[in-house]
Simulated assay, not measured.
Amino acid sequence: MTLTLIAAAAENNALGKDNQMIWHLPDDFKRFKQITTGHYIIMGRKTFESFPRPLPNRTHVIITRQEDYKAEGCIVVNSLNAAIAACPQDEEVFVIGGGEIYKQSIDRADKIELTKVYDTSPEADAFFPDIDPKKWELAEEVFHPKDEKHAYDMAFQTWLRK
């Protein structure tokens, strides 16, 4: 299995506040959809509950401490280990948040697909963990300047474990 973290984070590693994203970046959404469609996606319960409905064409694996939590059509587990075990072992699997799940999984990940959002350090209550340059190598970076649909400059980064 290739375990990949996928996120959009500000320069201060901010991900979101009050279970909401802090920006609207359509090309980041497109990239997320393109990369994760057809795959298993692992997330915390709060991240799952931030969606209006399950994301189409993906298998949702939800981590929660709530023993009786149910989500129709989704796999519900109580730990990161159980989430990883519930996924196919011969495919790429994506961790999509939130901050606590990223923190638990970064040392087990093989790859990070990060949208780095520049020129903003918003107030947040969820953060992406620091990427240690001793453990990770920036393999690809594609800059995306701000435009009429994107309020911020950003870069699509692919990090690989050294």
Rank of each mutant, 00 (worst) to 15 (best):
Y40W: 13
V117H: 12
V95Q: 07
I131M: 10
E141L: 00
M154Y: 15
D119P: 03
T64H: 10
C87V: 00
V142Q: 12
V95P: 13
A8F: 01
A10S: 14
R53N: 08
H60R: 09
F128E: 03
D90E: 12
E141H: 06
M154R: 11
V95T: 01
L160S: 00
A9E: 04
F94S: 01
M21F: 13
P56L: 07
V95R: 08
L55Y: 08
E72W: 01
Y102I: 09
F143C: 01
I131D: 10
A155V: 05
K149Q: 14
A109E: 09
W159V: 06
M43Q: 14
H60P: 12
M1L: 11
F29L: 15
F127W: 12
G73L: 05
D132E: 10
F143L: 03
K162G: 08
T120G: 00
W159K: 00
V61G: 06
P54G: 13
D110F: 02
G16K: 07
P54T: 03
T47P: 10
G98N: 10
Q104W: 03
T2D: 14
H150L: 09
L3I: 15
F94P: 00
G73Y: 01
E92L: 04
C87P: 09
V93W: 08
Q34I: 01
H144R: 11
A83R: 04
T37E: 14
S79I: 05
R45F: 08
K70V: 14
M154L: 13
Y69Q: 06
V76T: 10
E67M: 03
N19Y: 04
C74S: 15
F127Y: 15
A7Y: 06
A10R: 13
F48G: 14
L3S: 10
K135R: 15
E140W: 01
Y40C: 13
Y40P: 03
F51M: 11
A8R: 02
E91G: 04
T158L: 13
R31S: 05
D28V: 06
F29K: 12
Q34L: 11
Q89Y: 07
D132G: 08
K149R: 14
L15Q: 11
A14D: 12
D119Y: 03
V93N: 15
A139V: 09
H60W: 07
V76P: 05
I131T: 11
L5Q: 00
L114W: 09
H144C: 13
T120C: 03
A151G: 05
E140C: 00
I63C: 12
H150T: 07
P52T: 02
T158G: 00
R45Q: 14
V76C: 07
E100F: 01
D28F: 10
F127E: 08
E67W: 02
A71Q: 06
K116N: 07
P88T: 00
I35F: 01
A8L: 07
R53F: 02
P133G: 07
A82H: 03
E11Q: 15
A83M: 04
P54L: 11
K17M: 15
E67G: 09
G44C: 11
N57C: 01
Q157D: 00
P26M: 06
Q104C: 01
